[in-house]
Amino acid sequence: MLKSLKTKLAIVGTSVLASASAFATDHTAAIGTAVTEGTANYTAVVLGLLGLAAVGFGVGFVISKLKN
């Protein structure tokens, strides 16, 4: 009885693992796209901050020259 139960559990376990791997899909393209989009967003933020710093410096420079 116990040997039969172990055999049945082994068969069920094997079939569950086989079906799980059948549902696995390849997400490398989606991950690559996400990395590319993340890099583009990061670049946009860095350029935006540099632009903001340049504008702030420029406005400060103009104001300081107008005071003189």
Rank of each mutant, 00 (worst) to 15 (best):
A30R: 06
S15V: 10
A34L: 07
A18M: 09
S64T: 13
T14S: 13
F57S: 09
A29Y: 09
A40Q: 09
A40H: 04
A10M: 10
K6S: 03
T28H: 07
A34G: 08
A53N: 13
G38L: 06
L50F: 13
K6E: 02
K6R: 05
A18R: 01
N68K: 05
A34P: 11
L2H: 00
I63T: 11
S19Q: 00
K6Y: 04
Y42K: 15
A53Y: 05
F61W: 11
M1L: 00
F57Y: 08
L49I: 15
L66G: 06
L5T: 04
A24E: 04
S64D: 01
A22S: 13
K8L: 05
L47K: 14
S15G: 11
L2P: 08
S64I: 02
G51R: 01
T14F: 13
V46P: 04
K6A: 09
T36V: 12
A53V: 15
L50C: 05
T25E: 00
A18W: 09
S64L: 01
T39L: 03
A44V: 12
I11M: 02
S4Q: 10
D26A: 06
L9C: 00
G60Y: 07
G32A: 09
G56C: 09
K65Q: 06
V16K: 14
L49F: 07
K3T: 12
M1N: 04
A29D: 12
V45Q: 02
F57V: 14
A40Y: 03
T25A: 01
F23Q: 09
I63V: 14
L17K: 04
L49A: 07
F23E: 06
L9S: 03
K8Q: 03
G38D: 05
A40S: 07
L52N: 14
S19L: 11
T7H: 03
F61D: 08
S21Q: 06
S64A: 06
H27F: 07
G51Y: 09
K3P: 00
V59M: 11
L9K: 13
S21Y: 11
A34H: 05
K65P: 03
L49R: 10
A22T: 12
L5W: 11
A18G: 08
L17W: 01
M1I: 01
V62L: 14
K67S: 00
L5M: 07
Y42Q: 12
G13T: 11
Y42H: 06
V55N: 08
T43Y: 10
G32K: 13
I31G: 05
G38N: 06
E37N: 14
T25V: 11
G51I: 12
L9V: 07
L50P: 07
V12K: 15
V46D: 07
A34T: 14
G56D: 02
T33R: 14
V16S: 08
Y42P: 00
D26I: 08
A10L: 01
H27I: 00
A20C: 01
K65G: 00
A10D: 03
A30S: 12
I31F: 05
Y42M: 06
T25Q: 02
V35S: 01
S15K: 13
G32D: 14
S4N: 07
T39D: 03
T39E: 14
A18S: 09
K8H: 02
F23A: 08
L52E: 12
I11Q: 10
K8Y: 02
A30L: 02
T39V: 14
A30Y: 06
G13H: 05
A24W: 06
T36M: 07
N68Y: 04
G56N: 12
V59I: 09
K8A: 08
L52G: 15
A53C: 12
L49K: 14
